[in-house]
Structures are given as C-alpha cells and as structure tokens.
Simulated scan of single mutants.
Amino acid sequence: MQERLQKIISAAGITSRRAAEELILKGQVTVNGNVVTELGSKADPAKDTITVNGKPLQVSQKRLYILLNKPVGYMTTLDDPEGRPLVTDLLKEVNERVYPVGRLDYNTEGLLLLTNDGDWANKLMHPSNEIDKEYHVRVRGKAHASQLAQLAGGVLIDDRKTSPATVEVIQSSENNDWLSLTIHEGRNRQVRRMCEAVSLSVVRLKRVRYGSLSVGTLKPGEFRYLTDTEVRELGQTKKTVMQEKTRPAARIPSSKNYKEQNTIKNKR
C-alpha cells in the first residue's frame, strides 16, 4: 500500500515525520534510485526500494515505546557532528532503531520518551494536544513573587507570549530555590528562556513528568518500556492532567526568607 514518504520514514524509526520532511526537501531520500524532493510523494515500502542518506530503509513491524531518565551530557539527536554522546548510546539492549520524542538540551536531564512509532510521536508533539510537561528547576538565589507571577502568566519569547504555566517553589535554601514549572508547549529551550526572561539563572534543570508519566525511581541512564495502557492513554488524551494530586499555580513556602504565603493561579 502506498503511503507518504515522510510517514514511511518516520514509521521506520529513522526520525520524526517533521524531520523526515526536511530530509526529503534536501534531496536525501530516493525511491527506486530516483531522488524525491516533493513532500506529497508516495511509495510502497513493501515493493519500492527507499533509501535515506544512501542507506536502504527497513520498516520494522515491532513498535517500541521507551521512557529514559536522561543524564546530563547526552544529545537527544541521532547524530552529532561534535561526537558527543547520544541518548541512544544508553539503549544498548534495544535492537530496534528508535528516536526521541522531542528534545532535552545537552545540560538538561530527566524524562525522555523514545519510539519507532511515528504516528504516536507526532500525536504527542502536536501543539493541539497540550500535554503537560513538568520540570524541576534549581535557580540561583531567591525567586520572588513577582517573578513567579510573570512565569505563571506568560513571558515573551521571540516576540510571542508563552501560554500560562503552573509554577511553585518546592524547596528553598539560603542560596537557591527549587521551582516546579509545568508547561504544555515545546519551544526550543523554553524553560531556560522563560527563566532568563524574568532574570532567574538556571543552575539545574530536570523534566520529571510528561503527561501521566513520571520518571519514578529510574536512575540517570536507566530506561524502561511503557505498558500498553500507558502508550494508549498518552497517545489518545488531548490534555493529560496529573491525577494523584493537584497544586496551586504558584506557592511560596513559609520560611525566614518569606514573611507571608503567596498563591498565584492562572486558568488556561
């Protein structure tokens, strides 16, 4: 059966559908020896010979869904010109080719999903699904109520305001605050740039939750396979909300550094 090339490439676990489109536009995909550069082009993976960057395409029938606790110092790409370690280097036991669902920066750690199911990955990454992603952010110094309010209400990044976020101080010390920041967008380096926009310096950044999934007890570098239920629920839910507990949009804990309790709420 003929399908769009970008869908076939994505289903093979080479890369996401969006990145597959870029490969086609750059002339890096051939069908039966002919270079294809039109995004509407179709092929039959069962009959046609498809190559990507000169390598024959093999479509796997086995679908894999992986949750990895990414350590700092790994790239969430399938290739790095500088030769830095890749997240796929941590999956030596996985025989099928998988790719990351979205990205985490080189210096960002935590929950990362990988798969070879292009349709599932595209559902998760599509902006209309608004899947919550929770980060724990260690910032230098103290986070003031006005800064939390700005983060919760949205800040300008590239002349476009971010959507309302959920933010609270979850731990406070003399030199640093730990924030919980939940967003549903996926802009490049968004959490770091949001903090920069309100003059907060990020010392450490970790993603702890993606929709209904949490990093749990996985140690950095460890991974597990998702259950069928987890795959189905995450792929079908438009907007996944944490079921175990609900929290105010912003909360500053009482301590000697804070004279009163402040709560900020933003409705989406």
Rank of each mutant, 00 (worst) to 15 (best):
G211P: 02
A149K: 15
L113P: 01
Y74K: 01
V87K: 00
K123A: 11
E93M: 05
Y106P: 05
A145L: 02
E96P: 00
L114C: 10
R97N: 09
R63N: 05
Y258H: 13
K256V: 14
R189G: 01
S163M: 11
E222V: 03
P248N: 08
S201C: 06
E196V: 03
Y135N: 01
G153A: 14
K239L: 03
E130V: 05
L86M: 05
N95G: 13
E260A: 09
K133R: 13
Y65M: 02
Q28E: 14
L226S: 03
A19N: 14
M194E: 11
L86H: 06
L64D: 12
R17N: 08
M194V: 10
R63P: 00
P164A: 10
K55R: 15
N175P: 00
I170E: 04
L156E: 15
V29L: 09
G13Y: 04
L112M: 11
T51Y: 09
Y210T: 04
T30W: 11
K7M: 08
E134K: 13
V101G: 02
G73N: 10
T108Q: 05
V94H: 00
K7L: 06
V29C: 08
L124G: 10
F223A: 04
R97A: 08
N188E: 07
Q6I: 00
A43Q: 04
K206L: 12
Q28K: 15
D119Q: 14
S201R: 13
G216D: 15
K55W: 05
R4K: 11
Y210F: 15
P248Y: 06
E185L: 11
E22F: 00
I183Y: 06
Y258Q: 09
S10G: 15
V87Q: 01
V31Y: 08
D117E: 12
P127K: 06
L151R: 07
G13F: 05
L25Q: 13
G118C: 08
R4N: 01
R63S: 11
T51F: 10
K265G: 14
G118V: 08
Y258C: 00
M1N: 13
L113N: 03
L39S: 07
I183G: 03
K92A: 15
N175G: 09
I131L: 15
Y258L: 02
V59Y: 03
G221R: 09
G102C: 05
I252C: 01
R224V: 10
L234P: 00
R4W: 01
G118D: 10
R192W: 11
P100C: 03
R268F: 14
G186Q: 02
K55E: 15
R18C: 11
K161S: 09
K7W: 08
S163Q: 13
G110Y: 07
S173N: 14
N69T: 03
K206T: 13
A250C: 13
A19G: 05
K239A: 14
G54R: 09
N176M: 12
A19Y: 11
E168K: 12
W120Q: 03
A143C: 09
I50F: 06
I8T: 05
S172W: 02
Y210M: 13
V36Y: 01
L151H: 07
Y99K: 00
L181H: 02
T76M: 04
T263H: 02
L234C: 06
R103V: 00
V36Q: 12
A121Y: 06
N175D: 15
T162F: 10
S163F: 06
A165D: 10
K62D: 12
A121W: 06
H136A: 04
G235W: 01
